[in-house]
Amino acid sequence: MSKTNRTKLLLDMITFIAFLVAMDPRSLGIAVHEWLTIALAGTVVVHLLLNWNWIVEVTMRLFAKGKGLNGARVNYILNWAMFFDGVLIMLSGLMISQAVMPILGLSFPESFSWRSFHSLSTNLFMLGLGLHVALHLNWIVSTAKRLFTRKIKQVIPANISMDGKDVRA
């Protein structure tokens, strides 16, 4: 398995878990929620950089005549929708920030609209994330299998079976 695929999977898993944690601000407190989502924005940039070639390739194909997208169209549109939604989450989050922006010395008037946008965009993002995971499920499962079976093989030598018996001839 390529090093890039391994990095992609590990980064995506960390981002996914961090997103789940960040989605529950009531439990951990607003400060953790805000700083965690700012860190998440950084991991999303790395996610985009790791998938840059795919983004460029599909964008070029969209504008090139005679070249099919082979089902990547839905994925591409969904990714752009998630990007727009992610920007809206960050923007509305910063506008209603109670921990990060005051530290930077900035404050905005409390706004019902930004709060509503924040809740709505977060719920939409969850829907998008479910679809994103579903569209990439084959890649996730196959890469995870390769990653973890290799790890198991490293821990358990090839001449020892999984139930601990020595299988040397």
Binding site: L20, V21, R26, S27, G130
Partner: peptide
Amino acid sequence: GFGFGLLKNLVVISVIA
């Protein structure tokens, strides 16, 4: 509460997928 919220979000995303 933290565990419940995390699990709830995970279930919602899984159901959508």
